[in-house]
Simulated scan of single mutants.
Amino acid sequence: MYLTQLLLPLYDNHGQALPKTLFAQVRDELLEQFGGLTAYTRAPVDGLWREDDNHAVHDDLIIYEVMVCELDRAWWANYRASLETRFCQEQLLIRAQLVEML
């Protein structure tokens, strides 16, 4: 089983809040595709990375995650590309980890 996480920015590259309907659409799509999800939306996580030696970039993010039995890499690659367009991002992170159920 895999835990698949989508790190979604709350703001566009110009600092404008992204519409809540965008997040609702993603939530609904994941629910339809996978039958459930967990959404970490109450306290945004802070993303911080260096683009070069002098410039750090910051994002406020929420995380949506789904559990999947099999990892369909082609589906996720297409979905990530779609989200990058909708969220106006050069790159959006979707990550998957192998999970052992206890």
Rank of each mutant, 00 (worst) to 15 (best):
L30F: 08
W76K: 02
T21S: 14
S82I: 07
Q89R: 15
L102S: 04
E51D: 11
L83H: 13
L8G: 00
T21R: 13
W75P: 03
A24W: 06
L93W: 09
N78V: 08
Y79K: 12
W49I: 01
A77W: 05
P19W: 04
D72I: 02
I62F: 08
E29V: 11
R50N: 14
E70G: 05
L93A: 10
A77G: 09
T21W: 00
V68L: 01
L102M: 07
Q89N: 05
S82V: 10
A96G: 01
L98N: 01
Y79P: 03
M1E: 05
T38A: 06
L93S: 05
I94Y: 07
T85S: 08
E65Q: 15
M67A: 12
V66E: 03
E29T: 11
L7H: 15
Y40F: 11
A17G: 00
Q5F: 05
R50W: 03
G15Q: 09
L10Y: 02
Q91R: 14
P9M: 08
I62C: 04
E70F: 04
L31M: 13
M101I: 14
A43M: 05
H55M: 08
M1K: 04
R73K: 15
A43D: 11
V99D: 00
Y11C: 10
V45C: 04
Y64I: 02
P19C: 05
L6W: 06
D53C: 02
T41N: 03
M101F: 12
H55F: 12
F23Q: 03
T85M: 06
L8T: 03
N13E: 12
E90P: 02
G15Y: 08
L7I: 10
W75L: 07
A96I: 03
V57E: 10
I94V: 14
L93G: 01
I94G: 01
D28W: 02
W76G: 03
Q97H: 15
Q33V: 08
Y64F: 15
Q89I: 10
L98I: 08
A24D: 15
